[in-house]
Design a protein around this nucleic acid. Structure first.
Lengths: 306, 306
DNA sequence: ACTATATATACTCAAATTGAGTATAATGGA
DNA sequence: TCCATTATACTCAATTTGAGTATATATAGT
């Protein structure tokens, strides 16, 4: 880097990586190739006006449907990211996209429950058993860190909700990085069964995407991009719970949603389920042109945990 | 993009762009070259292990000081970003860095008040006069948009706090994009005096950085990276106000800061000012190792507006 | 038809937080 | 001394949150 703004030309290989998310039932899923081991990726074509346009094009071809939400995630550029090609530096520009349930074309695309890659992140049915196993190995690892044992102990406690700390679902990326550093995932040489591994650093990219989504849902109404046209309040709640990996308090969740004025009754009812039929709602897209709203402060929820 | 993960090799020019922020007095400043018209940038050198390391190296050389906070901002890659070179696509990976006041080396570096580029974003001394002028031109522009007049009217009202909308400081990027689209900034052909222009899309990059910082400060204790080792509560408040471009309610701000337990008294007092001497405080970095904390939820403030 | 179960929706209420103040303390300078 | 200025402490009503209970309306089984 120099002060003149002129630069020697440096050439690198550039690709796009897409993290596409959709719900199948109560499972938050990610689009993969090679049976769950790779995120879809491809070269960044010069013909496109910009990255976003290129991706949208490609996604439309693959899913046969337009995509509602698409935003840049992160650019990965470390050396040695891609095995077997240490001499080439691949710059991967990743994007996060949300796809609506009813638009999923099951024949063309493989969707993979993201919690198969991060089993310790799903607390919807209580604390996952694997947590204790991970903590055991982590503490053992920390004890070998000369002079850093205490710091690492605190880090483990903080990230995995030990002692007086609460589990914080936003820290998924930090947890994966800690496990990687401690050699407890396949990608860093472990033989333990700690979630399904992925090609190169794709699992790290997926963790980045989930972290972004879990953070974003708290101040922006992105869940609706994952809902079908009509939905019940419980379906909405289940999808939010799927994203954050925790269950929520029912009546408080409803109060908050209704307060926001983001949805309206369609007049119809859902009759498939057993009990009293639930009212169907629609997202009031009309509240404002989507572009103007982008980035606005619509706190979706503060804390409705059970 | 294809499904196999194999990709034709596509070569582009890659550079790093740094948005470095520091306070000088009560002015939030950005490091520039060419007297405020360019953000510092340079080639991404293959010798570096990763982007972050490359940037840190370079910044240390320039500022003679280590940098506390550094995170990736966005990757810009549209065609025709850089004038006079339409045939080359430059991919710019931008980073946001925070530099501490006492570390500023004024001889080597130019620091530029960022509000000179965005005069409509500083509401600390009340509503900036330029707002009414901008709104007048925006509405005129909107009225020429066949079939879209109403939507654009709503967008303008929302972004510039008209009608029943409140000014939302987080929307700085959207406001700049609207002004650009409406041809009201130099970069999109205007001759109006609407803030100092910058080279290529650097003003847009700066807006992205400020937006990120304004959003981030609400849930993470990043301000402390901009404070000197010791500071008074008022100095802290003034810096937060500088970032968000609004004044805050004094006692509520203090209550919130003290609640967080992020600072502690040093025992010393500030005697430079006129009235009663203020206690000096330090950031309790010890609360936790910085790395473990990164990304944690420490809501800095919800709303302490005056 | 009746009952148990499941689900939806409505309502309650104490505790905590927020927004907007006022009151008092400690300094320097006229 | 008194006043302007800044710091710090304290107050309190309104709102929001967290954690419930109560009631309504369906299906499945007997």
């Amino acid at each position: 880097m120099n002060d003149q703004g002129k630069s020697d030309i440096v050439l690198n290989q550039t690709e796009l990586i897409a993290v596409l998310v959709a719900f199948i039932g109560d499972k938050p899923c990610v689009m993969t190739i090679d049976n769950g081991s790779k995120l879809p990726s491809g070269p960044f074509e010069l013909s496109h006006k910009n990255l976003q346009a290129g991706l949208r094009d490609w996604i439309r071809k693959q899913t046969q449907h337009p995509i509602g939400f698409l935003e840049q995630l992160y650019t990965f550029a470390d050396r040695n990211r891609i095995p077997d090609h240490p001499e080439v530096r691949t710059i991967s520009i990743s994007y996060l996209g949300l796809v609506r349930q009813h638009q999923i074309n099951k024949k063309l695309i493989q969707w993979h429950d993201w919690y198969r890659h991060f089993p310790w992140e799903d607390w919807r049915r209580g604390k996952p058993e694997i947590i204790e196993i991970l903590i055991k190995h982590l503490l053992h690892w920390a004890n070998t860190k000369e002079g850093l044992t205490l710091v690492q102990h605190k880090r483990i406690a903080f990230l995995f909700g030990m002692d007086h700390y609460h589990w914080n679902e936003d820290l998924i990326l930090q947890r994966y990085e800690l496990l990687f550093e401690a050699g407890l995932v396949f990608e860093s040489g472990s033989t333990l069964q700690t979630g399904e591994p992925m090609f190169a650093d794709h699992r790290r990219i997926l963790a980045t995407a989930i972290a972004r989504l879990r953070a974003k849902i708290k101040y922006k109404a992105v869940v609706f991009e994952l809902m079908p046209e009509q939905f019940t309040l419980l379906q909405l709640q289940r999808n939010v719970e799927g994203l954050i990996g925790q269950t929520l308090h029912k009546s408080n969740f409803r109060r908050m949603i209704e307060q926001q004025g983001l949805i309206e009754e369609t007049g119809g009812y859902e009759n498939e389920s057993r009990g009293r039929p639930a009212k169907l709602f629609t997202y009031r897209r009309s509240v404002m042109d989507e572009r103007a709203l982008s980035g606005s402060k619509l706190p979706l929820f503060k804390n409705n945990l059970n």
